[in-house]
Nucleic acid binder design. Structure first.
Length: 201
DNA sequence: TTCTCGATGCGCT
DNA sequence: GCGCATCGAGAAT
């Protein structure tokens, strides 16, 4: 059920970003367990990806975790407000990551409602990377966690999607690299209500 | 040490 | 659809 550390060592971050759709992300905080189905992801191609914090091999105290081998979490604060949760993948010194952009709440909905101060019936409760992280109680303290540990982990609930249920969206605003502009880097479950707004079709 | 701005969300219009 | 909140990492000085 729980994904093993070897799962995260896959070197094709595109494959993992797609394969993670349908997996279930869990957090446990003071015995409060919340979980949701991953319905939207985004792949970050390490040194090749200008949008990646590790672009060009940049290596700082913040990005150091990205150079670890797969299976760790990378959480950082965006716009001074939102915590974004990433899964570090691939082998050591290959700083790939998958951003979790949206989840569908399935366990601990009441807890998520308190954290988000809105009913779980509202897709906005976990739609978008900042919202999904907050619903799961993910904050800066979740940075550099082992994803096979007891605080945060991912399970395979045998939820499978056919290729036509998965949308692969080319990245927008990537005029900087023509060969990357056509690269589909965003993946989501078509018509799932929890998918963040810019990606709905 | 200082300045800039971002892998965004939300409330108001 | 638009604008703002809010702060730390990274780069410039």
């Amino acid at each position: 059920m729980k994904l093993k550390s070897s799962y995260y060592l896959h070197q094709d971050v595109i494959f993992l970003a797609k394969d993670l759709l349908g997996k279930v992300l869990y957090t446990k905080i003071d015995d409060d367990i919340t979980a949701g189905i991953i319905v939207e992801t985004e792949a970050y191609f390490g040194v090749q990806d200008k949008a990646s914090h590790a672009y060009g091999g940049r290596r700082t105290s913040r990005t150091e975790i990205l150079y670890n081998e797969g299976g760790a979490s990378y959480v950082y604060l965006c716009y001074g407000i939102h915590h974004l949760f990433n899964i570090v993948t691939s082998v050591e010194d290959d700083p790939n990551a998958v951003l979790i952009r949206a989840i569908e709440p399935i366990i601990g909905k009441e807890i998520m409602e308190m954290r988000r101060n809105m009913p779980a019936s509202k897709p906005a409760i976990s739609s978008g990377p900042g919202s999904a992280a907050k619903a799961l109680g993910i904050n800066a303290s979740f940075n550099k966690k082992d994803l096979t540990g007891e605080e945060i982990w991912i399970e395979d609930h045998a939820i499978r999607y056919t290729p036509d249920e998965i949308a692969e969206v080319p990245r927008v605003g990537v005029e900087y690299a023509r060969e990357h502009a056509l690269l589909p880097w965003r993946f989501f479950i078509k018509s799932n209500p929890y998918v963040s707004k810019p990606n709905k079709i």
